[in-house]
Design a protein around this nucleic acid. Sequence first.
DNA 1: GTCTATATTCCGATAGAC
DNA 2: GTCTATCGGAATATAGAC
Lengths: 204, 204
Amino acid sequence: MRQRNEKAILRAATTLFAKKGFDGTRATEIAERAGLPKANLYYYFNTKEEIYRAAIRHLIAGWDKALRHIRADADPFEALEAYVREKLDYARKNADESRMFANEIISGAPFLSRADRKHMHDITLEKTLIIEQWVAEGRMRPVNPRHLFIVLWSTTQFYTNFEKITCDTLEKPRLSPSDYEDAARTIVETVLRGLRPGKASSDP
Amino acid sequence: MRQRNEKAILRAATTLFAKKGFDGTRATEIAERAGLPKANLYYYFNTKEEIYRAAIRHLIAGWDKALRHIRADADPFEALEAYVREKLDYARKNADESRMFANEIISGAPFLSRADRKHMHDITLEKTLIIEQWVAEGRMRPVNPRHLFIVLWSTTQFYTNFEKITCDTLEKPRLSPSDYEDAARTIVETVLRGLRPGKASSDP
DNA sequence: GTCTATATTCCGATAGAC
DNA sequence: GTCTATCGGAATATAGAC
């Protein structure tokens, strides 16, 4: 029961925080959306901030799941494609979480703890070393691995976070799985293809 | 005088709307940041919404500037690189506008008029036809031009909109012009390079 | 654990003196 | 045009009955 209500509150809160940020979201709205009287929010959580932080914690936990594909002994392009597909899939299936995270970062990451940021940084750093190794082995064209990850994050999150613009551009009322398939194909055939080692590795 | 104050209000408002969205931004904050008593806001604008809409209007006006590089008679890769560089440059130099736009879209674009969205759509559509023509002429690999634009928007805006994550990833306290140069190079050498027609146009 | 009623603070907007 | 003072309503959080 406690678990059920806490989950309902966090789900409702995530949707609203995603749309309107921390200051823009009203406790009353969260309660309404969760189907509870407002006072019950304050039974389960002491403050609105506590709800926000609980939601953030949940989404930081999922940050690095897709990165497990990046292993030194894997084929670089299979690994990167799997990473791209899983990131796209995660964003699609957890749209509100993805948007809430985006909102938090645009707002200047006021609720991300030093530890959270260090965690994300350390995991990323570990994977950049693998990319560098692949480059050194000639299995990939030279690329700044940190910028590569930034490009992959931006492209895989855009479809979900900026869905309104994506829908307008694709002339669809909302995005279907096949649109995400097109997205995956485009990212693979542009971003990743550009990194395949060619015959002449220094042509312009 | 009127012009000077209106500009100060819009500048302050854009910064705050970028960070906290419409509901999250307080009229008092806008006034403080603009260096005016709150009542003066209501002398120049009737409501907070009017301030928000004025700021949105300003940023819609700059949406399509960089797209002028995409002309049918241009070299596809020179044109696309110029587009990427100008988009990155615009985002860097107008960071708050760029973030406010991102915030508005994530929030579900509640203040974007049908006309604004149609404008953005029409301009984009016009340019997708040019990309299709380049593909048909064999000057570029086959690509879905709508998805290509989405990939270019996402990558060029990410650095500015999600600056906090970018800084953590690059281990810099803030982004310098040379970081933006690295960004441009990465986008050109990954996204755009993947679209160059190769000897074998169907290898995996 | 649940919910109504309320305390207290804060916000958007305005009145009206200068 | 500028600014102080303030109104009415709304927001966060709590008290306390059930």
